[in-house]
Amino acid sequence: MANSRSGETLTERLVRILDTFGTDRTVQTTAEIGRRANLPSSTAHRMVTELVECGLLERDDDQRVRLGIRLWELALRGSRTLRLRQVALPFMERVQARIREHTQLAVIDNDETLFIERLSHPQAGANITRIAGRLPLHASSSGLVLLAHSPVEVRERILTGPLRAMSPSTETDPERLHHLLAGFRRDGLVVAPGTVEAVSTGVAVPVRQGRGEVVAALSVILPVDTPTGSAVEELRFAAAGISAALGNQRG
Protein backbone atom coordinates (compact mmCIF):
# COMPACT_ATOMS: atom_id res chain seq x y z
CA MET A 1 0.00 0.00 0.00
CA ALA A 2 1.19 3.52 -0.78
CA ASN A 3 2.72 5.57 1.99
CA SER A 4 1.30 8.84 3.30
CA ARG A 5 3.43 11.92 3.84
CA SER A 6 4.01 10.70 7.39
CA GLY A 7 5.46 7.45 6.06
CA GLU A 8 2.49 5.34 7.11
CA THR A 9 0.92 2.90 4.71
CA LEU A 10 -2.76 3.00 3.86
CA THR A 11 -3.19 -0.30 5.69
CA GLU A 12 -1.73 1.16 8.87
CA ARG A 13 -4.14 4.10 8.72
CA LEU A 14 -7.11 1.80 8.07
CA VAL A 15 -6.20 -0.31 11.10
CA ARG A 16 -5.89 2.82 13.23
CA ILE A 17 -9.41 3.84 12.22
CA LEU A 18 -10.87 0.43 13.04
CA ASP A 19 -8.95 0.33 16.32
CA THR A 20 -10.79 3.42 17.56
CA PHE A 21 -13.84 1.20 18.10
CA GLY A 22 -14.14 -0.91 21.23
CA THR A 23 -16.62 -2.74 23.40
CA ASP A 24 -17.29 0.50 25.27
CA ARG A 25 -17.17 2.71 22.16
CA THR A 26 -19.32 1.22 19.43
CA VAL A 27 -20.56 4.45 17.78
CA GLN A 28 -18.55 7.59 16.96
CA THR A 29 -18.63 10.69 14.83
CA THR A 30 -16.15 10.99 11.99
CA ALA A 31 -14.42 13.82 13.83
CA GLU A 32 -13.98 11.60 16.91
CA ILE A 33 -12.56 8.81 14.77
CA GLY A 34 -10.08 11.21 13.16
CA ARG A 35 -8.97 12.58 16.52
CA ARG A 36 -8.55 9.15 18.10
CA ALA A 37 -6.78 7.76 15.02
CA ASN A 38 -4.55 10.86 14.93
CA LEU A 39 -5.48 11.62 11.33
CA PRO A 40 -6.05 14.99 9.62
CA SER A 41 -9.73 15.85 9.40
CA SER A 42 -9.83 15.67 5.60
CA THR A 43 -8.09 12.29 5.59
CA ALA A 44 -10.41 10.89 8.24
CA HIS A 45 -13.53 12.03 6.38
CA ARG A 46 -12.30 10.61 3.07
CA MET A 47 -11.26 7.27 4.52
CA VAL A 48 -14.40 6.86 6.64
CA THR A 49 -16.55 7.63 3.59
CA GLU A 50 -14.70 5.00 1.55
CA LEU A 51 -15.05 2.41 4.34
CA VAL A 52 -18.79 3.15 4.56
CA GLU A 53 -19.17 2.77 0.80
CA CYS A 54 -17.61 -0.70 0.87
CA GLY A 55 -19.58 -1.80 3.94
CA LEU A 56 -16.77 -2.06 6.47
CA LEU A 57 -18.31 0.85 8.40
CA GLU A 58 -21.95 2.00 8.62
CA ARG A 59 -23.66 5.32 9.37
CA ASP A 60 -26.80 5.65 11.48
CA ASP A 61 -29.57 8.23 11.01
CA ASP A 62 -27.53 10.79 12.99
CA GLN A 63 -24.50 10.23 10.72
CA ARG A 64 -22.58 8.55 13.50
CA VAL A 65 -20.36 5.64 12.47
CA ARG A 66 -20.21 2.04 13.64
CA LEU A 67 -18.47 -1.11 12.46
CA GLY A 68 -20.24 -2.61 9.45
CA ILE A 69 -21.78 -6.04 9.22
CA ARG A 70 -19.59 -6.80 6.20
CA LEU A 71 -16.51 -6.47 8.43
CA TRP A 72 -18.03 -9.05 10.78
CA GLU A 73 -18.85 -11.30 7.81
CA LEU A 74 -15.33 -11.16 6.39
CA ALA A 75 -13.73 -11.72 9.79
CA LEU A 76 -15.65 -14.97 10.29
CA ARG A 77 -14.90 -16.56 6.94
CA GLY A 78 -12.48 -19.38 7.58
CA SER A 79 -11.58 -17.92 10.97
CA ARG A 80 -9.59 -20.19 13.28
CA THR A 81 -11.38 -18.68 16.26
CA LEU A 82 -14.78 -19.33 14.66
CA ARG A 83 -13.99 -23.04 14.34
CA LEU A 84 -12.73 -23.09 17.92
CA ARG A 85 -15.91 -21.39 19.19
CA GLN A 86 -18.14 -23.79 17.25
CA VAL A 87 -16.39 -26.81 18.73
CA ALA A 88 -16.31 -25.37 22.24
CA LEU A 89 -19.87 -24.04 22.54
CA PRO A 90 -21.69 -27.32 23.37
CA PHE A 91 -19.16 -28.05 26.11
CA MET A 92 -19.34 -24.48 27.40
CA GLU A 93 -23.13 -24.72 27.54
CA ARG A 94 -22.86 -27.79 29.76
CA VAL A 95 -20.45 -26.00 32.12
CA GLN A 96 -22.61 -22.90 32.26
CA ALA A 97 -25.79 -24.91 32.89
CA ARG A 98 -24.21 -26.83 35.75
CA ILE A 99 -22.14 -24.09 37.40
CA ARG A 100 -24.55 -21.22 36.57
CA GLU A 101 -21.81 -18.62 36.41
CA HIS A 102 -19.90 -16.90 33.60
CA THR A 103 -18.17 -19.42 31.30
CA GLN A 104 -15.50 -18.03 28.98
CA LEU A 105 -13.19 -19.05 26.15
CA ALA A 106 -10.01 -17.07 25.51
CA VAL A 107 -6.98 -17.15 23.24
CA ILE A 108 -3.66 -15.32 23.25
CA ASP A 109 -3.27 -12.49 20.72
CA ASN A 110 -0.58 -9.83 20.57
CA ASP A 111 0.57 -10.65 24.10
CA GLU A 112 -2.93 -10.16 25.51
CA THR A 113 -5.84 -12.35 26.56
CA LEU A 114 -8.59 -12.08 23.94
CA PHE A 115 -12.01 -13.40 24.96
CA ILE A 116 -13.78 -14.97 21.99
CA GLU A 117 -16.87 -16.39 23.70
CA ARG A 118 -18.78 -15.95 26.95
CA LEU A 119 -21.94 -17.52 28.32
CA SER A 120 -23.63 -16.02 31.37
CA HIS A 121 -26.38 -16.96 33.78
CA PRO A 122 -28.86 -14.19 34.74
CA GLN A 123 -27.84 -14.49 38.40
CA ALA A 124 -24.10 -14.81 37.79
CA GLY A 125 -21.71 -12.64 39.77
CA ALA A 126 -19.51 -9.74 38.69
CA ASN A 127 -17.37 -10.05 35.56
CA ILE A 128 -15.79 -7.26 33.52
CA THR A 129 -14.83 -9.35 30.49
CA ARG A 130 -16.72 -9.10 27.20
CA ILE A 131 -16.60 -10.99 23.92
CA ALA A 132 -13.80 -9.40 21.87
CA GLY A 133 -12.54 -7.80 25.10
CA ARG A 134 -8.92 -8.01 26.22
CA LEU A 135 -7.02 -8.25 29.50
CA PRO A 136 -3.31 -8.41 30.32
CA LEU A 137 -1.99 -11.97 30.21
CA HIS A 138 -0.79 -11.92 33.82
CA ALA A 139 -4.02 -10.60 35.30
CA SER A 140 -6.80 -13.16 34.76
CA SER A 141 -7.10 -16.91 35.27
CA SER A 142 -7.49 -17.41 31.51
CA GLY A 143 -4.47 -15.25 30.78
CA LEU A 144 -2.35 -17.06 33.34
CA VAL A 145 -3.18 -20.40 31.69
CA LEU A 146 -2.24 -19.02 28.28
CA LEU A 147 0.92 -17.38 29.61
CA ALA A 148 1.99 -20.52 31.46
CA HIS A 149 1.77 -22.57 28.27
CA SER A 150 3.13 -19.95 25.88
CA PRO A 151 6.61 -20.15 24.31
CA VAL A 152 9.51 -19.21 26.57
CA GLU A 153 10.20 -16.02 24.64
CA VAL A 154 6.62 -14.82 25.19
CA ARG A 155 6.81 -15.49 28.93
CA GLU A 156 10.13 -13.68 29.18
CA ARG A 157 8.79 -10.71 27.26
CA ILE A 158 5.71 -10.43 29.48
CA LEU A 159 7.65 -10.92 32.72
CA THR A 160 10.02 -8.13 31.69
CA GLY A 161 7.08 -5.85 32.37
CA PRO A 162 5.65 -3.51 33.19
CA LEU A 163 3.02 -5.70 34.87
CA ARG A 164 -0.12 -3.66 35.55
CA ALA A 165 -2.20 -4.42 38.64
CA MET A 166 -5.90 -4.86 37.89
CA SER A 167 -6.63 -5.26 41.62
CA PRO A 168 -4.63 -5.50 44.87
CA SER A 169 -4.43 -9.29 44.33
CA THR A 170 -2.94 -9.15 40.82
CA GLU A 171 0.54 -10.66 40.98
CA THR A 172 3.01 -8.17 39.50
CA ASP A 173 6.32 -9.46 40.89
CA PRO A 174 8.15 -11.17 37.99
CA GLU A 175 10.01 -13.69 40.16
CA ARG A 176 6.92 -14.85 42.04
CA LEU A 177 4.94 -14.95 38.81
CA HIS A 178 7.63 -17.11 37.20
CA HIS A 179 7.26 -19.71 39.95
CA LEU A 180 3.47 -19.54 39.82
CA LEU A 181 3.49 -20.18 36.06
CA ALA A 182 5.60 -23.32 36.55
CA GLY A 183 2.97 -24.61 38.98
CA PHE A 184 0.15 -23.79 36.57
CA ARG A 185 1.88 -25.78 33.81
CA ARG A 186 2.36 -28.71 36.17
CA ASP A 187 -1.19 -28.72 37.52
CA GLY A 188 -3.05 -27.77 34.34
CA LEU A 189 -5.16 -25.41 36.44
CA VAL A 190 -5.33 -21.80 37.61
CA VAL A 191 -7.44 -20.64 40.55
CA ALA A 192 -7.07 -16.87 40.83
CA PRO A 193 -9.12 -15.15 43.55
CA GLY A 194 -9.51 -11.40 43.19
CA THR A 195 -6.91 -10.87 40.48
CA VAL A 196 -9.26 -8.83 38.26
CA GLU A 197 -12.07 -7.93 40.67
CA ALA A 198 -11.92 -8.42 44.43
CA VAL A 199 -15.37 -10.03 44.51
CA SER A 200 -14.59 -12.79 41.98
CA THR A 201 -12.43 -15.88 41.56
CA GLY A 202 -11.34 -17.02 38.12
CA VAL A 203 -10.86 -20.75 37.54
CA ALA A 204 -9.28 -21.78 34.23
CA VAL A 205 -7.86 -24.83 32.45
CA PRO A 206 -5.98 -25.23 29.16
CA VAL A 207 -7.59 -26.42 25.93
CA ARG A 208 -5.28 -28.32 23.58
CA GLN A 209 -5.34 -29.09 19.90
CA GLY A 210 -5.84 -32.81 20.44
CA ARG A 211 -2.89 -33.81 22.59
CA GLY A 212 -0.69 -31.03 21.25
CA GLU A 213 -0.27 -27.35 21.90
CA VAL A 214 -2.50 -25.26 24.14
CA VAL A 215 -4.74 -23.19 21.86
CA ALA A 216 -7.18 -21.65 24.35
CA ALA A 217 -8.18 -21.29 27.98
CA LEU A 218 -11.59 -22.28 29.32
CA SER A 219 -12.68 -20.55 32.50
CA VAL A 220 -15.53 -19.76 34.87
CA ILE A 221 -15.85 -16.69 37.09
CA LEU A 222 -17.21 -17.45 40.57
CA PRO A 223 -18.13 -15.27 43.54
CA VAL A 224 -14.93 -15.08 45.55
CA ASP A 225 -16.09 -17.27 48.47
CA THR A 226 -17.56 -20.04 46.30
CA PRO A 227 -15.89 -23.49 46.55
CA THR A 228 -14.09 -24.28 43.29
CA GLY A 229 -14.17 -28.10 43.26
CA SER A 230 -17.26 -28.52 41.06
CA ALA A 231 -16.07 -25.85 38.64
CA VAL A 232 -12.67 -27.53 38.27
CA GLU A 233 -14.30 -30.89 37.56
CA GLU A 234 -16.66 -29.45 34.95
CA LEU A 235 -13.95 -27.39 33.28
CA ARG A 236 -11.57 -30.33 32.99
CA PHE A 237 -14.30 -32.54 31.52
CA ALA A 238 -15.25 -29.84 29.01
CA ALA A 239 -11.65 -29.03 28.06
CA ALA A 240 -10.94 -32.70 27.42
CA GLY A 241 -13.99 -32.89 25.15
CA ILE A 242 -13.03 -29.76 23.23
CA SER A 243 -9.45 -30.95 22.83
CA ALA A 244 -10.59 -34.34 21.53
CA ALA A 245 -12.96 -32.71 19.06
CA LEU A 246 -10.25 -30.34 17.82
CA GLY A 247 -7.87 -33.26 17.43
CA ASN A 248 -10.39 -34.99 15.17
CA GLN A 249 -10.70 -31.96 12.88
CA ARG A 250 -8.66 -31.58 9.75
CA GLY A 251 -7.72 -28.41 7.92
Rank of each mutant, 00 (worst) to 15 (best):
I116P: 03
P122Y: 05
V107M: 06
L114A: 00
A88W: 00
H102C: 12
L114C: 01
V145C: 06
I108A: 15
G125L: 01
P136A: 00
I108Q: 15
R134T: 06
L119G: 07
A139W: 13
G143K: 12
A106E: 12
V152E: 15
E117G: 03
Q96P: 09
H121E: 02
V87L: 05
D109V: 09
A126Q: 11
T129G: 15
H149F: 14
Q104F: 12
L105V: 07
P90H: 02
L119C: 05
Q96R: 08
I128E: 07
H149I: 10
H138S: 05
S140C: 13
V107H: 04
A139L: 14
L114Q: 01
S140W: 14
G125I: 01
F91L: 10
R98G: 14
E112H: 14
P122H: 03
F115S: 00
P151C: 03
A88T: 04
A148P: 04
H138M: 10
N127W: 06
F115V: 03
R130F: 13
T103H: 01
G143V: 09
Q96A: 11
T129P: 09
A148E: 04
G143C: 11
N127I: 05
L89R: 15
A106P: 08
M92C: 06
S150H: 04
A106W: 14
H121K: 00
G133M: 11
V145G: 01
Q104T: 15
R98V: 10
S141E: 09
F115I: 06
G125V: 01
G143T: 09
S141C: 06
V145L: 06
T103I: 00
R134D: 06
D111C: 10
R94K: 14
G133R: 13
R85M: 11
S142C: 12
H149Q: 10
I116F: 09
